[in-house]
């Protein structure tokens, strides 16, 4: 997992920065620390109004409010989170970690260009991928057997169909969960890294 790159807030006064730091400490870092979880502050940004795609030298990143996160669309609105990471987030919640905002950062593929649709960000779970591969292998074998039995002409007609589906590339792009605390008066947010994971 690469470093988080959030667009920084420019020219924050030292008092604002200090106040934000204190708030983040009170509402996120300290409650987590009491449970033995060390949260890392990743920086302050201007309060985001909508999803942002940021290009950095580490690639393109989609920065989006969890309410609008596109990964939930295919799953009935439920954003898929690995069980272990979800348990950690539940623990943080129980510990009293109270961010004002919760945004997700998704790494976008290097081939992504402005105007392209957001690609599929969540891969199929590993156990299902393995099952799919096994089934596909068996069905390919059975089909070949059937086609051989049905004759060379049919085999020639069916072979291109079988070859067409050989390419699979469902590699997910790793997300980051950021909790943010807002400054009471200024439209700036201090972010802490709550969770991150690699899709297996």
């Amino acid at each position: 997992m690469s470093e988080v790159m959030v667009p920084p807030a420019r020219r924050l006064g030292t008092d604002v920065e200090a106040q934000l730091g204190r708030l983040a400490e009170q509402r996120m870092v300290a409650p987590a620390r009491r449970r033995g979880i060390e949260l890392r502050l990743v920086g302050a940004t201007v309060l985001p109004q909508q999803q942002v795609i940021v290009r950095t030298d580490r690639g393109a990143w989609l920065f989006v409010d969890h309410v609008e996160d596109p990964t939930g669309d295919g799953y009935g609105g439920g954003i898929p989170v690995p069980e272990r990471e979800r348990a950690k987030l539940v623990e943080l919640d129980r510990a009293g970690v109270r961010p004002d905002l919760l945004w997700l950062v998704h790494e976008l593929p290097s081939s992504w260009r402005e105007g392209d649709p957001i690609p599929q960000l969540v891969p199929t779970p590993r156990h299902l991928r393995e099952k799919d591969q096994r089934l596909a292998q068996r069905l390919r074998f059975a089909t070949k057997l059937l086609v051989k039995g049905a004759g060379a002409t049919v085999a020639a007609a069916t072979a291109p169909i079988i070859a067409a589906g050989a390419a699979v590339a469902a590699v997910g792009l790793d997300p980051i969960v950021l909790g943010g605390v807002r400054h009471p008066d200024m439209p700036v947010v201090q972010w802490a890294l709550l969770a991150q994971w690699d899709w297996e």
Partner: peptide, 8 residues
């Protein structure tokens, strides 16, 4: 608004 990935 989340669901367990492994069971999704």
């Amino acid at each position: 608004h989340t669901r367990v990935y492994e069971r999704a």
